Amino acid sequence: MNDFRTLQYYISQTKANPTCPEDYYEEGYMVLRQCISDGQAVLSSNFNASDSTTSGANGEREKAQLQRIMLDASARRFQAQKIYLRSVAATRWANSRAVILQGQKPQAGHFPLLQATDEGLRAVSLWIERPLSG
């Protein structure tokens, strides 16, 4: 639970607005805004504590409910970890972009480096979103 709280804290500290308004729709900034939105959705989603399928003694019901709670907490932590990794990749993208541009507007000479940075962000995003092999 502490790890989940730490992840949520870091996600909430993410800055999603570029210094230049014309960069607002750049891929990395859109990813950052999506991470903030996804983090808020994970945190605000409700846990359904009632389950009418478990019958039997109180001990069995409590055990089943505890298992559901643990499963829900694990799933939320996993979602938060993926969101956090995406936000770190997008923040790294924004920092790389700032280093490449050095306060200038994008020009033709910047294109290869900016394109490589964009492709790096896409590659990391694909890696994070890949299905788990079982």
Score class of each variant (00 low, 15 high):
Gly103Asn: 09
Trp93Ile: 06
Gln115Val: 01
Ala98Arg: 12
Ile128Lys: 02
Ala89Phe: 06
Ser125Gln: 09
Ala89Val: 12
Thr117Trp: 00
Arg130His: 07
Gly120Thr: 01
Val88Leu: 14
Glu119Lys: 15
Ser133Asn: 10
Gly109Phe: 05
Val124Asp: 09
Gly120Tyr: 05
Leu113Gln: 15
Asp118Tyr: 12
Arg92Ala: 02
Leu126Tyr: 10
Arg130Tyr: 02
Ala90Phe: 11
Val99Glu: 13
Pro106Gln: 10
Leu121Ala: 05
Thr91Glu: 12
Arg130Pro: 00
Ala89Lys: 08
Lys105Pro: 00
Leu132Lys: 00
Lys105Thr: 13
Asn95Thr: 05
Asn95Val: 09
Pro131Met: 04
Val124Thr: 14
Gln107Cys: 15
Ala89Pro: 05
Gly134Pro: 08
Gln107Ala: 15
Gly120Ile: 01
Arg122Val: 03
Val124Cys: 08
Ala89Trp: 11
Ala94Tyr: 00
Trp93Gly: 02
Gln104His: 14
Ala89Thr: 13
Gln115Arg: 15
Arg86Lys: 15
Thr117Val: 04
Tyr84Phe: 15
Leu114Met: 14
Leu121Gly: 05
Asp118Gly: 04
Gly134Cys: 10
Gln115Ser: 15
Leu121Pro: 00
Gln115Pro: 00
Ala90Ser: 11
Asp118Lys: 13
Ala98Lys: 08
Leu85Trp: 15
Ala98Thr: 09
Gln115Cys: 11
Gly109Tyr: 05
Leu114Tyr: 04
Val99Asp: 11
Gln102Cys: 12
Thr91Lys: 07
Ser87Arg: 03
Trp127Tyr: 12
Glu119Phe: 10
Leu114Asp: 02
Arg92Trp: 00
Gly134Met: 10
Thr91Ala: 03
Leu101Thr: 06
Ala90Cys: 11
Ala94Gln: 02
Leu126Cys: 09
Ala90Arg: 11
Ser87Ala: 12
Arg130Trp: 01
Arg122Ile: 08
Leu132Asn: 00
Lys105Gly: 01
Tyr84Cys: 09
Trp127Gly: 04
Leu101Ile: 06
Asn95Phe: 10
Ala98Cys: 05
Gly134Val: 13
Asn95Glu: 13
Leu101Gly: 00
Ser125Glu: 07
Ala90Gln: 10
Ile100Tyr: 08
Phe111Gly: 00
Ala108Lys: 15
Leu126His: 08
Gly120Asp: 15
Ala116Thr: 02
Arg92Thr: 03
Glu129Arg: 07
